[in-house]
Amino acid sequence: MSEHPETPVPPQEDGELDRRGFLARASAYAMGAGLVTSYGCFAAMAGRYLYPARPAPKAWMYVAEVAGFGVGSSLTYTAPDGATVAVARQKSAGNVDDFIALSSTCPHLGCKVHWEGQNQRFFCPCHNGVFDPSGAPVSGPPFEAGQSLPRFPLRIEGGLLYIEVGLEGLPTGEE
């Protein structure tokens, strides 16, 4: 009669039943744990695969000679990734703190600000953010949140000014 070993349950001592019950339950748990671990492992690997592999590569690039960079003057530097950077010299101490290099990426939600010559300010068209020439917020959401325009790291070496910028950008214009 008994094709399945567990179907007929002859009267047994309690110890016997407990052991069977325990074994059945333990193997069910073990199987569940095995399934969770293996598929969980797969899911974790997929998660890691989808998580961006590396930050965008950056490098130190040459900008200008410090000696030829007059106090109060500024220039527009174009990085290999296409970003335009406003570099200005504000002091004459001769060290790197003389210089600022402003990013044109708005600290609010990432739009591009542009320089408005007649108003002497940077303007962000997305939510009317305004920044003064040193990148400090003047009005709009960046002002409310106290966010300045981000600055690029600068370095002076052998009388030359270097900037750390991104190397890879999206293609612009028609291909």
Binding site: K112, P125, L170, G173
Partner: peptide, 12 residues
């Protein structure tokens, strides 16, 4: 116009 990562249009 095609996307231009370097300039945000006036009205978005």
């Amino acid at each position: 116009p095609r996307a231009d990562p370097l300039s945000t249009p006036e009205v978005i």
